[in-house]
Design a protein around this nucleic acid. Structure first.
Ligand code: FES
Ligand code: FES
Lengths: 138, 138
DNA sequence: TCATAAGAAGACAAAAAGGTCTTTTTAATT
DNA sequence: AATTAAAAAGACCTTTTTGTCTTCTTATGA
């Protein structure tokens, strides 16, 4: 469904939030190990998340990643859009340049309602809502 | 949603079936031009479809691609599975190694029903059903 | 039967995705 | 102040995906 970067981003951010709820600020080595992702690749992705303002970090000894509770909950749709774009939310399943109701591909009227459900899902769920949900890790 | 190969495969096959219904057997140059895909790449994909037995071809002057009406309708799910695998049908949206109800990721109970709808769609729709549906091309 | 038109096969190449590593900057602790 | 622990930055590399091209094989029809 999503590409690796998006998956690692979502898993990292949820892990950070889970640890934050416990009063901890995990560092990159811990995060990568826990979510089973390549360390330096995960670091690069999280740096982008920080630059976007999606999550905060602190350098130096005792540093790590954390969510600033002043920020609103972070929608997973916003993460997805920032990392891999919005093709999953708006693109045509048949690969036409764009999805157009008035010139629909033969999959359109069956696919559009499914895509709508995806849109609802990623608009409603947040890193915070996922972090509060007990979950498996492999 | 799908990768380029899958998109080109679906668009090619639907175009071939549409033309077959008109009594024609289109060639690779025509197909690629009509579905707006790179010619040689499309040729390579269609060769795989032929080897899989999904569609037939005839070499030489007057040759082209066609569906043998003896074969059952071709499910788009079978095409997708052959071209890009079954990740979209069975994979975990959070990127866990596999989706497991008993050890679900935090997206599972919201994502699984959507994935189920995708499975139904690709099991019900066929190249033939799509070819009978009037459709846009860009 | 020979010229020609078509698909088959496979080598090659470019671009994008995925991943690794080293150096720099920052901050806390001793 | 020096040491140490951490993220930031960015160069570099590998693999996969996407795309191109040339040569070979097959069939038609003049
Ligand atoms: S036109 Fe293809 S999904 Fe809407
Ligand atoms: S475990 Fe992630 S979708 Fe089922």
């Amino acid at each position: 469904m999503f590409n690796k970067e998006t998956e690692y981003a979502m898993r990292s951010l949820v892990y950070i939030q889970v640890e934050n709820y416990k009063g901890r600020r995990p560092g990159i080595s811990e995060i990568a190990a826990e979510i089973d992702a390549p360390r330096f690749f995960t670091a690069k992705i999280l740096q982008r998340m920080v630059r976007q303002g999606f999550v905060q970090s602190r350098k130096g000894r005792g540093g790590g990643f954390y969510f600033d509770s002043k920020h609103a909950p972070l929608k997973i749709g916003d993460v997805i859009k920032a990392v891999e774009g919005d093709n999953i939310m708006t693109g045509c399943a048949f690969g036409l340049k764009y999805c157009d109701e008035t010139n629909p591909c033969p999959l359109h009227f069956r696919y559009a309602p499914i895509r709508e459900k995806i849109n609802t899902l990623v608009a409603e769920e947040t890193i915070q809502s996922l972090a509060r949900r007990p979950a498996g890790t492999d």
